[in-house]
Design a protein around this nucleic acid. Structure first.
Lengths: 193, 193, 193, 193
DNA sequence: GATGAATGAGTCTTCATTCAT
DNA sequence: CATGAATGAAGACTCATTCAT
């Protein structure tokens, strides 16, 4: 219980919080539950995080960082815009599937400012990433001559709705592939002469 | 002190709740705030709604009913599937714009069963409405040969994401028209011979 | 709703209170329930009784008066002490059977002084009535040479316990006659030569 | 602020509750009063007892257990029925004298089921204990040929009334010995030829 | 570093009482 | 005389946070 136990305890707390926040939301989660999940005392949690907010914010930050890293990874060697879009979407959905806690990103019960800002900045960044891809596609003539900003918003909202729906425990979800396909080709029949 | 009519007080409470729930979420909202917003005493709220749940559920139900009615109206005289889709989406988004409170439909912190059920049933119904439209479009050959279920999910999630994004106070949102256009035609350039 | 309605409304309120107090106890009873039972508005109750206490006290007083009257009646023409005792006990038990509300006489949740005093005085009076009977029986040599005070207490407590038990809804109760018989003759076998 | 040991705090809370319940009854007692009596915060009470009911039930149970144990002890080496009866009654009355809180056993304001059941079962058990004693006395010919059930009820109610009277703070009570004597011999003079 | 007992402000809810009509 | 909408003080219970050990 000494050596590098400090870091391991911190991690245990963090991962317990994740579960509890995911299951109960920010307001609904309580410190006793988190402490129990981490097998430490309540007071101990406060040795590592000075309040509930900080715990929450730390999680938020680490999710954002990881999703960011994965996305960068996924896009690294792709040049084709359609392919890049597919990679972006798939990465996001797969990540969300693994991290139900990410709901919180969508969650409404953040009364505090810092979390909101962080989050909004993150989302803005992701949207502009999509926008870049679309712009490139339009430039190369692969995508139709749409407004890249609007297209990015549509794609972004679509992903977000997907994640929210998934998080709410509602069964019906499209497969990433089918989704990408539809976004690329649209609903209307291509005129095959 | 009590010249106000029963119905008017009820309405004032309802509309105050709407604001408070929208701003703080279910768990975060508190009866004192709601009462203050309605300019009545806390006890008075309980004269009209027997508990917080009932207040919430009443709001939820009325939103769902109104959105339902509006959607039915909008689709009444439309036969063309693409047009119907556009009408469905536009109605939903316009409604959400007017009723920020609808976030709650997306909300995470409903611990109680009845609200969740009601909500899920409502969402299911709406999704199946989209599915019907898509199916018809595929049948008539206007839409491409996609899986109507999957397409409905995409469209549905897309709308939902849109609403969530809007609710979170984030600025960037696509215009319904541009969105519909993209969903219909897809991102990829149509091959112009 | 005019003529002599005043008195009739008062009576309706009183009799509704009786039921409600009997069923819920003093603290547990609430004015809305009483008003409903009397088919008047809550405010109307306050037109007749200035507060919950007064309502309660009024009932208490009327029970005591009635029991008092009945007891006096029952004892009027009896000279024989054993017979008088039997009459006293039987009257009390019969009355209690008809007036479940009388529990309240036994009830614990009277936080206010006036009721308590009234009640204690009433009980003291009844006990001294028994004592007189016993004293006379001892004087005439019909009763054994016991301390009349102690005997009165025993008899009094016995009746009281009977009533409490009855009120608590517990099934098993002795019949007044068997009880009187036992009190008179004792448990021990009489030596029959 | 927290040097007090867990068990000692629990005991302090329990004994404060005893006083408060005894003085105000179940409904009338409130957690603030109990906490104050135990010199802890309200929240602290809930660290030890998860609700008001549990606090009450804990007390109820411990009284019943102790009175049970004492009664068993007292009767252990007695074979003579008259003596056994005297021991039973005396034990009960002495116990009640030491534990004014026992009123609660008589209390009317238990809205919750478990407490009532527990209590009624306890009382039934005690009554049947008396019945056994009486039956034995009748069988051996020491007691007169009465119905043991009825006699048990009388004795039981008598004790109960005694306790209630005592609890209500009313001064006058028979001494256990005089009471037993009367129950055994009856009021009527034994015919000494 | 870790514990867990303790706090106190805050939450939902109830209810005796008042008062304009 | 009667209504019933409204009040506000209180009650049971929860929980983030602190602190002696």
């Amino acid at each position: 219980m000494n050596e590098r136990s400090r870091e391991s305890t911190r991690q245990r707390i963090l991962s317990a919080s994740q579960k509890v926040f995911a299951e109960h939301g920010y307001t609904g989660a309580n410190m006793r539950l988190i402490a129990q999940g981490a097998a430490v005392s309540v007071g101990c949690v406060y040795l590592y995080f000075k309040c509930k907010d900080e715990l929450y914010l730390t999680l938020l930050e680490s999710w954002m960082n990881e999703l960011d890293a994965r996305t960068t990874d996924a896009l690294e060697n792709i040049v084709e815009p359609a392919e890049a879009l597919a990679a972006f979407i798939t990465t996001g959905i797969v990540y969300a599937r693994e991290h139900k806690e990410m709901v919180l990103l969508q969650g409404r019960d953040l009364g505090f400012a810092r979390g909101l800002e962080m989050k909004q900045q993150f989302l803005r960044k992701r949207r502009s990433l999509i926008e870049d891809i679309v712009r490139k596609g339009v430039a190369t003539g692969i995508f139709c001559d749409c407004d890249p900003g609007e297209a990015a918003k549509l794609i972004f909202c679509s992903m977000r709705g997907f994640i929210v729906t998934m998080m709410m425990g509602e069964e019906a979800l499209y497969s990433p592939e089918a989704g990408v396909e539809l976004l690329l080709n649209g609903l209307l029949r291509r005129d095959t002469p």
